[in-house]
Design a binder for these strands. Structure first.
Lengths: 352, 352
DNA sequence: ATGAAAGCGCTAACAT
DNA sequence: ATGTTAGCGCTTTCAT
């Protein structure tokens, strides 16, 4: 009647007591089973099961065993692009017995800082981050302090860190070249008011392609900015239709910052009585699962989301190896042509 | 030139040394600043910043401070439904300074077990779980061992745990009643081969509504099962069209297990030359962001995903309070009528 | 093959 | 107001 002293956590001590051995023997059974006498080992293992022993991670870490926790700091967990990316990270981590600490920054440097701090306190094995702030200093600081950092969706440039990125300049070029070959000469780029780097790159790719086609990008590239906060993005995109149609000269095609924006744009265009692609071509970015099934099926630039995550996790896990050297991996996006793009309306085609 | 002895972690010891005080004074500055003399405090705070001290979470936990980590065990991180739910969890946790450990089970009891174990080792503050296994024993065991467990998307029934769930029977009823009122008499339910509980409930709701309308559910409810593994679900749904059209009597409407399945079905139906909703009505489930923008906009049953997550986190955090008692929260789904449902084709309407 | 003992970084009770 | 001390549960020498 006196034994039940609350569900206090059971440790190695208790196991040792039950098995009639010392704690170090229990420890040995766990980490170097071979050096323990078979009979003793059996007894210990039985005691472990008997009392339902679960080792304490924190205690281990205190002793210097690396943490199985890896942080991922991305813009928004609920965004399908990042959700898929996180899944890639998770799967790779699972292979190494690690767990994912998933965090959203909502693109706010303040949140990013706060979480970075929490993650360091937890002494995580490393952090995979899509930077919210343009200033890389805090990240470098974290890395210098001993927590490995892997940059995602941002080339490492001259930074002394590992990174995984997609060549968004190429992505932008691909989109633009496709439209140009279709006969478009005025293209709108639907982006946000504040650009994280990767988004600016896409616009640059567009510009490059337009220039390469001998077009004056001052006239042929129309920059449309939407307020990104608060979400949902699809609404902002829907509302942007007005701006797009008001632009002079009026663009005949729109390249969107991502598929979600394209989704909203499609709705807005339809509401405005324009047909896609007959009156206006639309290109998305990301190639989310629903893109193929929209009406019309969306032409978009595919990014290898899952693989991006896997590669980032791979790099991060590699940081633990003694011979690790920082690397930058770059993925190529690819254009997926579907039905939301077509030649511009007759009469617009060669208009200058 | 000799100071740089590797980036070994800096602890309270070092801070104390620099500030010329003892470790407990440093500890006091951190946890009970008021009892420290202002001047001393200033010196210590300066030392903290000076050496870039970051407290060690693991060491704290070992001393009994509760972990800020909370695990979430759901089917699939990349599934938009769960992604949004996780976001709700994350936001609520952030308010309490906690972090989310996001894990996917892929509906595999084995994975679930493995992760449950890892989470316990990390001594997390608690676990929010959408059970992958029908057997609740392991979960109860975890709870009994001292790690709070909150069930999600599954009513707690007689289980001694907190839970957050949606009334899926109502969801199924809502969908069926809508279709029945439109004149449909044969409805297909497009589900998976193995049902997690919540999915079976939806079917039951359908059955109830059909029966209430005086229909023989043996004839009026057509059960279509798709293989869920491997994904993508949208493909499976697309392929299921054949089965649906082959059913005799042929259904005039399909209720899908979720919006993703509906997405695929829409594609398959279109490929088969059927128009939605003229030839076939389609109802989704979840109301994901893209549902409103599909062609046609999808009639679907909305679940409060984000709120579900928040509520679960709320319950979990509450478990730490001494006066906590387990509770079950139940959300109501709601029908969102859009354009994918209409009366059945003429001639089918009153056919028996 | 097994055990004793030190100590990881921290908190809290106690002593000064 | 500040310091001393004893662990938390574990890993790891170093005896035995």
């Amino acid at each position: 009647m006196a034994g039940e002293k609350g569900p206090r956590r059971i440790g190695m001590r208790e196991v040792a007591r039950v098995a009639g051995v010392s704690v170090s023997t229990v420890a040995n059974v766990l980490s170097r089973p071979t050096i323990v006498a078979p009979e003793t080992r059996r007894r210990v293992e039985q005691a472990i099961r008997g009392v339902g022993y679960v080792p304490s991670g924190p205690a281990r870490q205190l002793r210097g065993v690396p943490s199985p926790l890896v942080g991922s700091l991305i813009l928004d967990l609920a965004n399908p692009f990042y959700a898929e990316l996180n899944r890639g990270i998770e799967d790779r981590l699972a292979e190494a017995g690690c767990l994912l600490l998933a965090c959203s920054t909502d693109q706010q440097p303040g949140k990013e800082q706060r979480i970075l701090r929490l993650l360091q306190e937890q002494a995580v094995r490393g952090i995979i981050v899509a930077p919210a702030s343009p200033d890389p200093t805090p990240l470098l600081e974290v890395s210098r302090r001993g927590t490995p950092v892997v940059l995602i969706d941002q080339p490492r440039g001259r930074l002394d860190l590992c990174s995984v990125a997609v060549d968004h300049t190429l992505g932008g070029r691909l989109a633009a070249e496709h439209l140009i070959s279709l006969g478009h000469r005025r293209i709108a780029y639907l982006g946000g008011t504040v650009d994280p780097d990767p988004v600016a790159e896409r616009r640059e790719g567009l510009r490059l392609a337009l220039a390469a086609a001998g077009l004056d990008t001052r006239r042929s590239l129309v920059d449309i900015r939407m307020a990104l906060h608060p979400p949902p993005l699809a609404h902002a995109a829907e509302a942007a239709v007005e701006q797009i149609l008001a632009a002079r000269p009026r663009p005949t095609a729109v390249v969107c910052v991502n598929d979600t924006a394209a989704l909203g744009l499609l709705g807005g265009l339809q509401a405005a009585g324009l047909r896609v692609p007959a009156d206006m071509s639309v290109v998305g970015y990301d190639d989310l699962p629903f893109a193929a099934r929209l009406a019309p099926p969306l032409t978009t630039v595919n990014q290898p989301k899952y693989e991006l995550g896997r590669a980032a996790a791979d790099l991060l896990l590699d940081e633990a190896r003694p011979d690790h050297t920082h690397r930058g991996i770059r993925f190529q996006p690819s254009l997926v042509v579907r039905a939301s793009t077509a030649p511009p309306p007759a009469g617009k085609r060669s208009q200058r």
